[in-house]
Amino acid sequence: MSEPNAGRRPILFRGGGFAPTPRRAVPWIVFAVLIGLWQAASSSGLLPPLFMPSPAAIVRALYELWLDGTLMEHVTASLKRIVPGWIIGTAAGLAVGLAMGIFSSARAAGLPIVSALFPIPKIALLPVLILWLGIGEPSKVATIALGVFFPTVISAYSACDSVPRNLIRMAQSFGLPARDIVAKIVLPGAMPGILAGFRISASVALLLVVAAEMIGAQHGIGAFVLTAGNLMQTDQLLAGVVVLSILGLLISWGLGLVERSALRWR
């Protein structure tokens, strides 16, 4: 051993990678590039404006709709259907879903009915609801409420199932009455699942309001988009679609805020 370091070789690094790391600029660049390409294709005449208006034309249409007040008129009409429909569907869905999550007999009674009715596309019930409630607002609100009700029931009772049994046993071992176990263990434990369900039901509500307004309404984003399509006003049509996308983003941002404040313990 005359040369102690002889023959030593450093070990090659072979870890790293395969772990998502944030790249803040990338999403913006992708957006900018896609819209830029689209605008370039439109400006060069590659895209016929009647079938695919340019981003600039859509923004212009949006601006005009904003100026003459039609945009807010339609958005307000849609919100007046979504908000009560979602609240009614959610309240009823939570009541039924939590009952099914907590009481075995409620589950036994409710599960077959919910399973049978859940897969029906609720828009198919609009004609019946129009027959019962008339062509006005109640039938549209009821369609949204029905569409929101079933996913809420399912998310509420499966959220109850996901509350760890050991926490309930713990509460029983300290002598908590059943009412307290529901209020202090089951409901807070089910909250993440319930809030996740809100995201689904909110997107269902948005889908159904557009569909219902396309079937029979003077105002509302769905009606506006349909009319614009019939009049071949493609820029206005796509402006309506953009408004829907913004509405969806706002709803999911709002729910994100609620989740963050209600589930701070996570």
């Binding site: 050991n166 926490l167 713990m170 071992s173 300290f174 807070p188 909250m191 589930l263 996570r266």
Partner: peptide, 15 residues
């Protein structure tokens, strides 16, 4: 609470 448990998995409420 005469009979009181201490659990293996602690059984704490995370919230």
């Amino acid at each position: 609470n005469p009979f009181t448990y201490i659990f293996q998995d602690f059984a704490l409420l995370p919230w």
